[in-house]
């Protein structure tokens, strides 16, 4: 157990260094670089509309410069920024004029509902299909599945989302043109109406082909491997032999899935854009289009911070999934 704790601590330090790196990176983007370019970062957080009124604009700039401390030495600014970030204070979204974190908390659930069910479904599907292909290696079933995975992997996600939206939603009217219009309340019917197709699409495009092929290829290797051969000679029943092969093949797939989980929030821009789902991807895209920098960098931080946490949890779980790793803990 102590070995596990020291491992956990070591990984924590590694991930914490990355977190600091991330904060420095964000600070550079939002404040450091502009100042290096001789731009007062405040101009980025003052609503553009104000610039029509010269006086109001100037006052606003002045107040905010003092408020955010942009007139202070860089290291003071930096420390303040780190503090703010770690307390999730990213400033005000100047369009809705609300704290950025409030906006984020408002939009995050749409994305979570969008992404989590497909991740689960696609993982099971990938495992099942990969296993079927591996058990019938070289057969027509295997060829079809393997090539399907490859093709699916290479279909640009935005094209698939778009084309399915056009065919099923626009042409066949099997759902609302813009999901935002029905997602005004979280009742189950509305959620199903809005999400059924996005769920299918994310199931297909987000990591599914990679996991499926990974399952297939690993299991093909494992089925050929010496320990499986040995179990067979030793007279272990074929059903049990296969379940052992599956068990070992699952390890890389599960590892891969947990990495996918870390980045799933980053894979949603297109789908939210096409289907009009007001989630994090939509928020970030809107922020980028409108140059709403506090919102932009704030949501970017949340997305990345989330990956970081999931990656750390992965670090802790890997030794449980793969008993072989226990050895490397010592």
């Amino acid at each position: 157990m102590t070995s596990f704790l020291s491992y956990a601590l070591k990984r924590f330090i590694d991930r914490f260094i990355l977190l600091i790196g991330l904060i420095v990176f964000n600070w550079l983007l939002l404040e450091g670089l502009p100042e290096a370019f001789g731009i007062n970062p405040v101009v980025w957080i003052v609503p553009r509309e104000l610039s029509h009124n010269v006086n109001a604009y100037a006052t606003q700039i002045k107040t905010l410069t003092v408020l955010f401390g942009f007139n202070q030495p860089l290291y003071v600014q930096f420390v303040r920024y780190v503090y703010n970030t770690l307390t999730f204070h990213f400033g005000y979204d100047f369009l809705a004029n609300e704290p950025v974190i409030v906006e984020i908390i408002h939009h995050l659930p749409y994305t979570l509902v969008l992404t989590i069910p497909p991740l689960i479904i696609s993982t099971f599907l990938a495992i099942i299909l990969g296993q079927i292909a591996a058990l019938r290696r070289g057969s027509a079933v295997d060829n079809t599945l393997s090539n399907y995975f490859i093709i699916q992997y290479n279909i640009p996600g935005f094209f698939l989302s778009f084309i399915l939206w056009v065919v099923l939603i626009v042409a066949l009217k099997l759902g609302p043109i813009s999901d935002a219009s029905v997602l005004t309340s979280w009742n189950i019917v509305n959620v199903l109406k809005a999400y059924w197709l996005p769920w299918i699409i994310i199931t297909l495009i987000f990591g599914f082909p990679v996991r499926g092929l990974l399952m297939r290829n690993t299991m093909v290797d494992i089925l050929d491997s010496d320990f499986i051969r040995y179990e067979r000679i030793a007279g272990v029943k074929e059903g049990i032999v296969r379940s052992h092969a599956r068990q070992v093949s699952l390890i890389p797939v599960v590892t891969r899935t947990s990495i996918d989980l870390a980045f799933i929030l980053g894979g949603i821009f297109v789908i939210e854009y096409v289907f009009g789902i007001p989630g994090m991807g939509y928020l970030l895209t809107e922020a980028a289009v409108k140059f709403d920098f506090p919102l932009l960098v704030g949501s970017f931080f949340v997305l990345t911070f989330y990956s970081l946490i999931v990656l750390y949890i992965n670090d802790l779980i890997y030794p449980l999934i793969d008993p072989r790793l226990k050895k490397s803990l010592r």
Partner: peptide, 15 residues
């Protein structure tokens, strides 16, 4: 590898 790639590109291109 820590960054969600597309989000990163969007942020950097805007900034």
């Amino acid at each position: 590898f820590l960054f969600p790639a597309l989000a990163l590109y969007i942020v950097l291109i805007s900034v």
